[in-house]
Design a protein around this nucleic acid. Structure first.
Length: 314
DNA sequence: GGTAGACCTGGACGC
DNA sequence: GCGTCCAGGTCTACC
């Protein structure tokens, strides 16, 4: 099947735009050219797990070619399109990105602006929790094990499956450590409707109301809340962590204690308003690419595991 | 309102 | 190869 995309959309650039593209059940396979990369992703749809092979042979703005591992049953096509659209931010208007490029022209030439995310809010929330207080290789492992152990056919597990587990089981099989009870509790809240994805995705609700609700959730603090906000398409907050402080010190030549650097980072990116996360993130991303080559050339099973803070400090 | 310490895992390092 | 130290964000208890 084919999926239409916005005129500015470029698969290789827009998939390799956020670290989640290196986490299971996502699998980006770099090609020899910008056009030849392939994005594989397993989704758990009504008729069971299905593997998508997504490419864009004809280049920027041209439809995506999507090869499926099985035939779709009734009703699955709409759900598949919805999930792919969320993941690749196909619903983000080109006009919004033009506005971003006007505000921060550094990214106009490359066209960067879209940030890859997950097909569902549940997966984004769990991926965020698995990235807190842990080195990147451990985040990779937690997501790999969650998909292997609890995902149907290697897909990301549905909240109903995680909600039915004992925390100790999650800890023993997926190396999630003390996050076990928090992950199970979050899954239960998704299942019960206490966390209503539609409410969080509602653009009529202001950022602060969403942030306040997020920060009440188990395992979600200031950093995680700001990160989930950007995953929800709200880019006016910065998820500041030790990596931000490193960026402040190494790239922006800031001096002082961590807290002071975080305050200075907030001031530095304030002029970018409701696009500030994009400006901040692509600065970080540019640094990683300077160290490790263009993101669309990164091999998940090689570069992902060597992507440690210690190596980046070199 | 601010902060110290615990939480868990795995990489880094010293021997 | 083994043992120890440390990084990482959230949560709780305490001041």
């Amino acid at each position: 099947m084919q999926l239409p995309v916005p005129t500015d959309f470029l698969l290789s650039r827009d998939v390799a735009s956020y670290g989640y593209f290196l986490l299971e059940p996502n699998h980006w396979i770099p090609g020899t050219t910008v056009r030849s990369g392939v994005f594989n992703r397993i989704l758990d749809l009504a008729g069971g797990p299905i593997t998508l092979r997504i490419s864009q042979r004809l280049g920027k703005g041209k439809p995506l070619d999507v090869t499926l591992s099985r035939k779709l049953v009734a009703g699955e096509k709409a759900e598949l399109s919805r999930q792919v659209s969320r993941m690749l931010r196909l619903d983000e208007p080109a006009a919004v990105l033009r506005e971003f490029h006007k505000l921060d022209p550094r990214w106009k030439r490359s066209g960067r602006g879209r940030l890859m995310r997950s097909p569902t809010l549940f997966e984004d929330v769990i991926k965020t929790v698995t990235s807190c207080n842990v080195a990147w290789p451990s985040t990779i492992r937690m997501n790999q094990r969650l998909c292997e152990v609890f995902g149907r056919g290697g897909a990301f597990p549905k909240p109903e499956i995680i909600a039915a587990q004992r925390p100790a089981s999650l800890r023993a099989t997926c190396s999630v450590g003390y996050r076990d009870a928090r992950i199970v509790q979050l899954a239960k809240m998704f299942v019960s409707g206490e966390i209503d994805a539609a409410w969080f995705e509602n653009s009529d609700i202001d950022d602060e109301a969403i942030r306040e609700r997020l920060i009440e959730l188990p395992g979600i603090g200031p950093y995680a809340a700001a990160n989930i906000l950007q995953l929800l398409g709200r880019f006016g907050h910065l998820p500041l962590d030790t990596e931000s402080v490193r960026h402040g010190r190494v790239v922006l030549k800031m001096r002082g204690k961590s807290r002071a650097i975080m305050k200075r980072l907030a001031c530095t990116f304030k002029p970018f308003g409701h696009h500030k996360f994009r400006s901040y993130w692509f600065e970080l991303w540019m640094y990683y690419e300077a160290k490790r080559g263009p993101a669309h050339t990164w091999e998940r099973d090689i570069i992902g595991k060597t992507f440690t803070a210690a190596l980046l400090r070199e």
